[in-house]
Amino acid sequence: MGSLIKNKTVQADDNLAFLSLEEYLDSGERAQAVWLDADEEVEGIADFLEEIPAIALNFPAFSDGRAYSNAAILRRHYKFSGEIRAIGDVRLDQLEQMVRCGFDAFELAEGQNPEKALAMIEGFSFSYQQTVDREPLFRKRA
């Protein structure tokens, strides 16, 4: 496994255990971390979000963009305030898009340079569109 980035610093592995969606739903214990695959919908855990401390969203391949929508929905519709961690095929050039969509922890894929990741995480100075962390640029322009 590659490095873990959280709070904009490189961290030691926190050994947080994420249950799969199936395990989570079966367990009956709601205050647990859970991970969803790209084809699993966040709507399935909507009722428990207040208790869930962290949700990991998996990128089966870096070119699979479904988890961005899952993250954006968690933050924007459900106002989820726990951690959203990117796991799987997480590479440097995706980090800024992940940040904009509400991810705040990143388990980098093998071989991705964590120092470089920190330098790239901010990305562009502005966003034309509304993102989880920014108002659309036109509101700033006004």
Binding site: D64, G65, Y68, Q94, E96, R100, Y128, Q129, P136, F138
Partner: peptide, 13 residues
């Protein structure tokens, strides 16, 4: 054009 430029959620459709 502006809305779609670098849209973070829709870069990997």
């Amino acid at each position: 054009r502006q809305w779609s430029t670098f849209h973070p959620e829709f870069n990997w459709l």
